[in-house]
Amino acid sequence: MTGASAAARSRLFGGRVGIEGATLVLFAGAIASYFLFPNHLALLTQFLVLMMFALSYDLLQGHGGIVSLGHAAFFGLGAYAAAILARTGYNDPLLGLAFAAVLSAVVALVLTPIIVRGNDFTRLLVTLGVASLVYEAANRMRGLTGGADGLPDFEIAPVLGLYKFDFEGRIAFIYAFMVFAMVYVFLWRVVTSPFGLALRGIRENTRRMPAIGSPVRRHLAVAYTLSGGIAGMAGAVLAQTSRFASLDMLGFERSAEIMMVATLGGSGHMAGVSFAALAFGWLKDVLSTASPKYWQLGLGIVLMLSVFVARGGIGGLLDHLRFRRSA
């Protein structure tokens, strides 16, 4: 490693040397999993969706320091947008993805005035309130959303007109992986840009930012809009690959879950947050298989333990590992 690139790295990642290594492992693992677990592709696809959703939320909480208890509103909005568009006959997956992203981003943008002002506590209440409204609206608009029954019957056209979604879920996995990779690279560029630096500055010391000429509200509005759009994309991918959209995609539980995942991952650590999503999804699957009745108990215990065992979250552990090996 030359001095210049080491300096560049450190400039970008605040001394978190382990993050690129962890990112490589993450991508290699995702690709390997396709070959290692050919019978679990549907589950793996869900993991990818959860990772995308977690990354979208991490942009808010981990980088910008904005907490939200209603981020699933954008996830569900994206899912419904893709599903409803497909039912009207426009069932190209990329079109649906773009539509979901734009719609969720626009809704996020419209909401920014009430999200960006205020403090953490008011934000928790406001985001919770907004998500409840969206949930109830989706519940009432049965004609559009299917209400509590969800939206089951729609077809998704082949990706790029070439790759038909198959029964084993191979194309679904590859499609989800491609979108995930795109989202990851995009977010990586965002958080390492001057804008990303400004977001971290806002998280560290909001008061100080206007004093160096940084428009805090505008930055947070941009972050919220991007985050909403990406959450919408994650929802769209889930709806398209599972051919289903339902109210639980908008629900409070999913919002709370993603906050847990981001915290477990280590705020602002993209690789850590992705691994946390993976661990969370996997744990949930294992525990609910082992005990359909008491799995939440197991999940609760693991989450509580993680606070004591891994202070900086999984991202913190990753950095620590790396540090010890090279020291």
């Binding site: 605040g14 400004a198 560290e204 160096i212 428009p215």
Partner: peptide
């Protein structure tokens, strides 16, 4: 924030360095 654009530069008493940003990132931001 706009007053900084005018040409006012403030070195506050509390210094207010961003603790988890590197020196260079503190400057670049």
């Amino acid at each position: 924030a706009e007053r900084v654009e005018l040409g006012l530069g403030w070195v506050p008493q509390e210094r207010d360095i961003f603790p988890s940003l590197t020196v260079e990132e503190n400057l670049l931001v």
